[in-house]
Design a protein around this nucleic acid. Structure first.
Length: 776
DNA sequence: CTAGGGTTAG
């Protein structure tokens, strides 16, 4: 394991040195001037070396030189090598290539294999594979380069591998290039990884694993399969490591997800080796830095990138934007965007996902800029609109997606499901879901969590049960379904227990999200012992875990446990957040520990720099109110920086009722009725308050007001689990809707009689009977 | 003839 502190200190030193040394780093330019000084006609060898050095870096100049030569000295002044290099310089430009092809036929140089090979390569690159393949089939004696050229032309990895197998059957001996090409095919298809390993064995047998190109390809495939130890082993055995070898390692660590630090470490070693870093190195290391959320190092990298001139690359700027946004430095990200001369889809998409407020206007600008959006753009845009909660815009974008044919792309559908769920219209979510061709887990998770968000817990459970028939659930699936079971009284706890056993089977019980959700679910469903057991078995207790268990005990009014756990949490070095404090305040309030509660509230603001929310204020008001400190409670409401919400007013009203304060109660109730005129609660409490004082006229006025506005009192429900069904059975007092009502009531009477009988013997069943009578 | 990077839904 690497020591973070140590690494970052080392990186700091290394990059500082690098910044100083970089001034003369990229100044070396290729020198071509001697070419001009050689008089015409220039010997062929001069052209060969000139063109081959130019064609990589500046192909158009190479083509120009080629043209001048033909015009000045005729076709006879060139040979097959020059034509081959000239073709290379065309870089997949078919028009130029065709001209060159004509020239080759005209000069008779097309009979040379090198020229045919170069032509085939050109046609492959230009996307005319059929053309190239036709040429290949007409070759009387293709060499390994001809084979490799065709092999590399395959767009589909599987077809490419088939061709390689055919090569093998026909007795073509593989060389380093063949292996490299086939390995590249293997790395892009999962099922081919066994073949990749077999190839590695063959490569090893032929001693080709020390070839830089082959080694790089091996490093790349191992990195892509997240087998970094193997990648490292191959890497160590490459004698002539080039920049690509290093970059492959760097990106390999990046791909593994949480190995950002290792990636940065590789970068530092690259710096130490004195390598000339390029845009790919920077793109990778900046991504790693974003992963690590290390803004300081990111700024150092940024300056390094500016010094090396790599800031001219769109790709590097794109990843810098993303890094800054991950480090929560949005203005820096925007600055990078503004400074860019050229922007591509990724630049715009990144900007759209960073700045959700202006997402739509960025999208419009993007269209005006002539950059066509892709599916990722729509994912970002839909996400931004979900956050903004602008239904009209969402529908418009959905329409746009459909128009450009993106709405059936997997990621887009998934974001649409989430968006409609956020809008509260599950019908639309379901519609999108049902139109998906292949239901991957992410789509199911999106749907389940959508149901939970909209309080449709049974539907969530149902969707979960369909999901587990189709695929293996993951931590997100369980996170959602457990919260559904925790929140929904009518779902029997046995479903939660079944989930729990499934979680254990899948080895997910120590997962951060899942363990927290389990603790929470058991606590909400009354099984605090299970909550505690699960909590204690979590090896590394996270903030979520601590908060879950504290809230669990708070919900059970176990003040002592709450405070014990809170202390242990702080000793354990885990910083409480606003939700933790909310749980503690709840516990204080329920136990009447007003002064402790106030102390906690103040320390939250002062020591932990947490801005109290509406809920925190309500909790304190509730606490003061319950203790009869009504004046302070009302003062507290006035002290709130925001408009007092429903729960704060309800708390105050409740306290007024408890202590019979009609005046204050009226103020609270009026504020409440204004906030939610259709809720019966405040009317009922107020009329009861007046009733207790005998002010019947006022009671009547309130009752009439309720009737006029159409406010109805909600009926309370209880639940009973019948035969471990999917749903529990709900019933209210005086409920006669069940077909077996008569039998049910007879049973209740029997039970009541039995209790009376037992009471005469034990004398302690009074309460239970009262409860039962109430339930009727 | 061959190789490396960036945006992304829960």
């Amino acid at each position: 394991m690497l020591n973070r502190q140590h690494i970052f200190q080392t990186i700091d030193r290394a990059t500082k040195r690098l910044c100083q040394g970089f001034k003369n780093y990229h100044s070396s330019q290729h020198a071509f001037h001697p070419f001009e000084e050689i008089p015409q006609p220039k010997p062929i060898s001069v052209h060969q070396s000139m063109l081959s050095s130019l064609c990589r870096e500046r192909p158009y100049e190479a083509i120009e030189i080629f043209r001048t030569q033909i015009l000045q000295s005729g076709v006879s002044s060139i040979d097959e090598v020059v034509v081959a290099i000239g073709l290379k310089a065309c870089r997949g430009d078919v028009k130029l290539g065709c001209q060159m092809h004509g020239l080759a036929i005209f000069s008779g140089l097309d009979s040379f294999l090198t020229v045919s090979n170069s032509l085939m390569s050109l046609y492959c690159k230009a996307g005319f594979f059929e053309e190239a393949f036709g040429m290949f089939e007409n070759l009387s004696s293709p060499d390994i380069v001809s084979w490799n050229t065709i092999l590399s032309g395959f767009q589909c990895s599987k077809k490419g591998v088939e061709f390689a197998i055919q090569m093998h059957r026909e007795g073509v001996a593989f060389d380093a290039v063949t292996y490299t090409t086939v390995l590249a095919f293997c790395s892009s298809v999962d099922e081919l990884n066994i073949l990749g390993i077999q190839l590695h064995a063959l490569i090893f047998k032929h001693g080709l694993d020390t070839d830089t190109f082959v080694g790089n390809a091996l490093v790349t495939i191992y990195a892509r399969w997240a087998r970094m130890s193997e990648a490292e082993r191959v890497f160590a055995e490459i004698p002539d490591k080039d920049l690509i070898s290093w970059n492959s390692m760097l990106s390999g660590y990046n791909q593994e997800g949480n190995c950002g630090l290792e990636a940065i470490w590789v970068f530092v070693e690259m710096v130490r080796e004195g390598l000339k870093l390029d845009r790919v190195s920077f793109a990778s290391v900046v991504a790693a830095c974003g992963h690590e959320r290390n803004l300081n190092f990111g700024i150092q990298l940024h300056s390094l990138i500016l010094r090396t001139g790599c800031s001219a690359y769109v790709s590097v700027c794109n990843v810098m934007m993303s890094m800054y946004s991950k480090c929560e430095a949005v203005s820096e990200a925007k600055e990078v965007f503004e400074s860019m001369i050229e922007r591509n889809v990724i630049s715009w998409t990144t900007m759209i996902s960073i700045d959700e407020e202006k997402a739509l206007s960025h999208f419009r600008e993007m269209r005006l800029d002539g950059v066509p959006p892709n599916e990722v753009t729509f994912v970002g845009l839909i996400h931004a609109i979900s956050i903004k909660n602008t239904v009209k815009e969402g529908q418009a974008i959905h329409g746009q997606c459909t128009k450009v044919g993106f709405s059936f792309k997997q990621p887009v559908s998934n974001s649409l499901i989430t968006m409609y769920a956020k809008f509260g219209s599950m019908e639309d979510s379901m519609k999108v879901f049902s139109e998906i061709s292949f239901r991957e887990l992410i789509s199911c998770n999106a749907l389940i969590s959508g149901y939970v968000q909209n309080n449709m817990f049974q539907e969530a459970l149902q969707a979960f049960q369909t999901t587990i028939l189709e695929t293996k659930p993951n931590e997100f699936t369980f996170g959602s379904v457990l919260s559904a079971i925790g929140a929904a009284e009518p779902i029997p706890l046995s479903h939660g227990q079944r989930c729990h056993s499934r979680i254990i089977k899948l080895g997910l019980e120590t997962n951060l999200v899942v363990s927290g959700a389990l603790v929470d679910m058991y606590a909400k469903r009354g099984s605090i012992e299970d909550s505690r057991k699960i909590f204690e078995e979590i090896p590394q207790k996270s903030l979520v875990a601590w908060t879950s268990i504290i809230s669990a005990f708070a919900r059970h009014d176990d003040f002592k446990s709450v405070m014990d756990l809170f202390e242990k949490m702080e000793i354990g070095g885990v910083q409480p957040d606003s939700i933790t404090f909310l749980a503690i305040l709840t516990a204080c309030s329920h136990k009447g520990m007003v002064d402790t509660g106030l102390r906690v509230f103040n320390s939250m603001v002062r020591n932990n720099q947490i801005e109290p929310s509406q809920e925190h204020y309500s909790c304190v008001i509730d606490m003061l109110g319950r203790a009869g400190r009504l004046k302070e409670a009302e003062e507290f409401i006035h002290r709130m920086p925001m408009k007092p919400g429903i729960s704060a007013l309800q708390s105050l009203l409740g306290a007024c009722k408890m202590y019979g304060n009609v005046e204050m109660g009226r103020r609270a109730a009026e504020a409440l009725m204004e906030l939610e005129p259709m809720e019966s609660g405040s009317y009922v409490v107020m009329s009861n308050l007046y009733a207790e004082r005998g002010e019947w006229e006022k009671v009547a006025r309130i009752r009439k007001g309720m009737r006029d506005k159409g406010v109805k009192k909600e009926v309370g429900f209880s639940w009973v689990d019948v035969n471990d069904s999917m749903l529990m059975h709900g019933f209210s007092s005086d409920d006669k809707s069940h077909p077996q009502t008569r039998n049910i009531y007879r049973t209740v009477e029997f039970l009541a009689a039995e209790m009376r009988f037992l009471e005469t013997r034990h004398g302690s069943m009074r309460d239970v009977e009262d409860d039962l009578a109430l339930a009727m």
